[in-house]
Design a protein around this nucleic acid. Structure first.
Ligand SMILES: [Zn+2]
Ligand SMILES: [Zn+2]
Ligand SMILES: [Zn+2]
Ligand SMILES: [Zn+2]
Lengths: 144, 144
DNA sequence: CTGAAATTGAGATTGAATCTCAAAACGGAG
DNA sequence: CTCCGTTTTGAGATTCAATCTCAATTTCAG
């Protein structure tokens, strides 16, 4: 994993720095979604000296290398999640309470591959966000 | 169309103002995607006195009323498109040149409905973005 | 080791989006 | 139509995630 990152960095002719390693390490240890600022405070709390700039500079790199995915852009700032440990999945987001429901459908994935083939498009990654109302909110709802 | 907007606004207990009408009118007359700032300059050029604030305040309303959809958040600022005239569709976006390919698949839509039913989630809208490389960029590509 | 090139951090800067609040517009009651 | 409480608007200030600047530091090929 860490090796794969080394290779990726080297393959791009970039340097393997302590900061990039720390950032990836922290992300790997993060379950669920995170945003750059959370990551920053988490790292500082652990004694790391990484700056926000390095985090913001490293994130696009991690996306390109398929280590993380961007998710949940509903709010004001972007959220990401590690794609390595967990399996790829998409999201249903409740517009009432903000709850995030993760799901995975092989059929849905295959269908997208088909569509890309039809359009001669080389799929790299995708981002599906279904917005609606979760069962909890739907239940407790009569006349607002 | 304009009537549907009147009804929507009235139904929410809001007021039908000249500004909201102008904004919707301009959007209806817009083919393809747009961002709030474009809209602002387009309206000002036509002599309208609408402010950016009104545009930013009206957009969430238009989304809620299903008049427009948010698309393409790849760049720095959000892009939208009118959903009324054209049929709903999703997007393939080229990470090399930024080209946007629109597509529609009834199978894909139905599948999403099924998944939502399975998860007891009331789908309101969705947003699928497939990122990859378009055929044009794929062709003219040997050793960077 | 050495040195050219890449990377970093602190702080400044950007700019899309939001907020403030007095003035103006809307719309129901009469 | 007029009156009046409520909503909406616009100009400018403000926010704050994200980006940029640049001198100091780190990496790594040779
Ligand atoms: Zn909910
Ligand atoms: Zn997730
Ligand atoms: Zn392309
Ligand atoms: Zn489109």
């Amino acid at each position: 994993m860490d090796n794969r990152f080394r290779d990726f960095i080297a393959g791009k002719g970039l340097k393997a720095t302590k900061e990039r390693a720390e950032i990836l390490q922290e992300i790997i240890g993060t379950v669920g979604h995170f945003d750059p600022d959370e990551l920053y405070f988490r790292l500082r709390a652990k004694g790391s000296k990484v700056s926000r700039a390095s985090i913001y500079r490293t994130i696009p790199l991690l996306i390109e290398g398929r280590f993380i995915d961007e998710v949940e852009r509903v709010g004001k700032h972007a959220h990401y999640e590690c794609v390595v440990g967990g399996q790829h999945h998409d999201h249903m987001i409740c517009i009432k309470c903000g709850a995030v429901l993760e799901f995975y459908s092989p059929t849905l994935e295959d269908l997208q591959d088909d569509l890309c083939r039809q359009h001669r498009f080389s799929k790299v990654r995708h981002h599906l966000e279904i917005l609606g109302v979760c069962s909890a909110c739907d239940a407790g709802e009569t006349q607002e």
